[in-house]
Design a protein around this nucleic acid. Structure first.
Length: 283
DNA sequence: CTTGTGCCCTGCCAGC
DNA sequence: TGCTGGCAGGGCACAA
């Protein structure tokens, strides 16, 4: 489940590989995963690849048309160099190369340097869209600042939530408020903060809001440093796992001991989503 | 404006 | 063994 750290990792790895190259061909293997006119972005040097919230934006020279990608839960971007080696220097095992395109490959991009980029997505929730820059602005008009953005101050964060009746967990996952936080880092952040995910926002003090904000930021930053969490489908662009899953605090650790107090982690439902918490540390 | 619900889609897995 | 129903979930449309 790619969240801000996973998408950030993908963008950091992909940018130096793709900037300056041109997309020569787009092979749409599943219509649902693509919209817009691919011709508008073909054979133009890629100028930049960036991230906003969990969206990936690719800019091309001399055009306002952008390629915007959202991986949703199971999307992957996998880069294969011209000689079919992994970016990380791993040996190109036959099975790894032959797996691409796989049954889950929805879009295949052919670059002018002979490399390929595969957009894989098991559940077909993710998408790639060609859209003008103005539509990208519209897309982000109602997306809050990234959780790691310095403009999210302690005071502003508390101000936004102080009178809300929704739970603190649902609030930090609401990307119209702050963007980039999904289930993994929301659960782990609240555990680090020692705050119950079921607490209504309006019951938190200023100190607790500050505590929660800083804790969520801490785990998100840790996720970036460890190149994301590989729990189900996420991989780095060269097909390797991230490192955050090994240090995660509560997410998908139901029944396992709390890292702080050894109480078994429990799972509850909030708004149709699973929430993991320590019933002792997070009263 | 705020909050809640259902939908999109596929593969996995527990249970029979 | 083989089938089936339930589940997972980010973002959005829509209802209340």
């Amino acid at each position: 489940m790619p969240e801000l750290p996973e998408v950030e990792t993908i963008v950091r790895r992909l940018a130096p590989l793709l900037v300056g190259t041109q997309i020569e061909r787009v092979d749409v293997r599943r219509d649902k995963s693509w919209s817009g006119d691919a011709e508008l972005i073909l054979n133009r040097p890629i100028v930049s690849i960036s991230r906003r919230a969990k969206y990936i934006i690719t800019q091309f020279a001399q055009t306002d048309w952008r390629l915007v990608t959202h991986l949703k839960m199971t999307g992957q971007l996998i880069y294969v160099a011209p000689d079919a080696t992994r970016v990380g220097g791993g040996h190109p095992t036959a099975d790894w190369v032959q797996q691409l395109p796989s049954t889950h490959t929805r879009i295949q991009f052919a670059l002018n340097d002979g490399s390929s980029l595969f957009f894989n997505d098991q559940r077909v929730f993710g998408w790639c869209r060609v859209m003008p820059a103005s539509n990208v602005d519209t897309l982000f008009a109602h997306v809050g600042p990234d959780i790691i953005d310095a403009r999210v101050t302690d005071e502003w964060f508390a101000q936004q939530l102080r009178h809300r009746s929704i739970s603190i967990k649902q609030a930090i996952m609401d990307h119209t408020l702050v963007a980039g936080v999904g289930n993994i880092y929301a659960c782990d952040g609240l555990h680090l903060a020692g705050v119950s995910p079921t607490r209504a926002c309006r019951s938190l003090s200023q100190a607790e809001f500050t505590n929660v904000l800083h804790a969520v930021r801490t785990v998100v930053q840790q996720g970036i440093e460890l190149e994301g969490a590989t729990i189900s489908d996420y991989t780095t662009v060269d097909g390797f796992a991230g490192g955050y899953q090994d240090v995660r605090r509560v997410y998908k650790r139901e029944g396992e001991p709390c890292l702080v107090c050894s109480t078994p982690i429990i799972r509850i439902k909030q708004g149709g989503r699973s929430t993991f918490l320590c019933p002792s540390c997070q009263q």
